[in-house]
């Protein structure tokens, strides 16, 4: 098999053999077929090329030509991209899909400014607060030892407003620290907490989405722009075929994880309306400190506008 005329070297933090990589390979195969083998992809999974920042640096110098980035990682480059991660903002997949579609043109523009061509959005899922102790009120949350991932200004300023000083630990230290009691409350998607085994220690899950986590698949803009029109269309078409499937699979694994966790004795805690309202008020306070340093007012207003729009639609709304 001859080497492709246009080879894209793509890196990702997702492990080899994961749904993300499998689905990406399906996408790559379709592009290769449709372009008669002229466009090819080579994947470096499992973070072998480094984290988001290293991947972006390598794209800048041309060693890589694309990557699957996490929201937290790429937001240091494209700050507005973090808008959907604001806590207690998006509440259902319906809202997520509607807001996402509405924001897509703005996102594409912001990424292009940084020489990135946004090909598709990916999903981690809704993030839940999970704890080793039962936490269903704000004082209980404040009292527990909170973990926070490093380098995420949104969660940092939100926890500060809530009066919580989180303990920052690298992901590999989280599980052992949950066990030893160094931290008590962590944040992750349901699937993530199964993959990392956090659910074996943090057995209480607050059953209101704390936030939404997602990512992006982006290519080098210049390299993408230099492709013939037909090739670019082939990439977009293949992305439209395969990334919605990935989204669907991600949602299925999160649902499956909820079942598994419930079977293994995880308790899903209900919290009352007033607490939710209080958490949302605190969120609005936090957002004020984030604009414009970490987020533009423009993107925030557009997001809230879209949210009002979808919430005012008759029930049922847009089918998924």
């Amino acid at each position: 098999q001859a080497a492709p005329k246009h080879l894209f070297k793509i890196a990702s933090l997702a492990p080899a053999g994961s749904v993300w990589i499998q689905q990406f390979e399906n996408f790559a195969r379709e592009v290769e077929e449709k372009t008669g083998g002229e466009v090819g992809f080579r994947v470096y999974p499992g973070g072998v090329m480094g984290d988001d920042q290293a991947m972006f640096r390598k794209m800048r110098v041309g060693q890589l030509h694309g990557g699957g980035f996490t929201m937290t990682g790429i937001s240091s480059v494209v700050p507005d991209f973090r808008v959907m991660a604001i806590p207690f903002l998006l509440e259902s997949y319906e809202e997520v899909d509607f807001v996402k579609e509405g924001l897509l043109p703005a996102f594409e523009e912001r990424f292009r400014e940084k020489d990135l061509e946004l090909i598709a959005l990916t999903e981690v899922g809704f993030i839940y607060a999970m704890s080793t102790t039962s936490i269903s009120t704000l004082p209980e949350l404040q009292k527990s030892k909170n973990w926070s991932p490093a380098g995420d200004p949104i969660s940092e300023s939100y926890l500060t407003i809530l009066g919580i000083t989180p303990v920052q630990l690298a992901i590999p230290d989280v599980l052992s620290s949950l066990q030893s009691g160094l931290i008590e409350t962590v944040y992750n998607s349901l699937y993530g907490s199964i993959v990392l085994q956090w659910f074996t220690k943090a057995r209480y899950v607050v059953d209101v989405p704390y936030g939404y986590a997602y990512g992006v698949f982006a290519l080098d803009r210049k390299k993408f722009a230099s492709l013939p029109e037909a090739h670019r269309q082939a990439i977009d078409a293949a992305a439209a075929h395969h990334f919605p499937v990935l989204l669907q699979k991600t949602r299925e694994s999160n649902e499956e994880s909820r079942r598994v966790m419930a079977e293994r004795g995880t308790e899903f805690l209900k919290i009352d309306k007033q607490t939710v309202q209080l958490l949302q008020e605190k969120r609005d306070e936090a957002v004020k400190t984030l604009i414009p340093g970490s987020l533009s007012k423009e993107i925030y207003d557009r997001t809230t506008g879209l949210l009002q729009e979808v919430r005012s639609k008759p029930a049922g709304g847009k089918p998924n």
Binding site: K145, N146, E156, I164, T165, P166, V167, L182
Partner: peptide, 14 residues
């Protein structure tokens, strides 16, 4: 700080 204020300074680790 973690023991006295149950939280540390975010800038220390980086």
């Amino acid at each position: 700080l973690r023991y006295v204020y149950s939280g540390g300074l975010l800038w220390i680790d980086p």
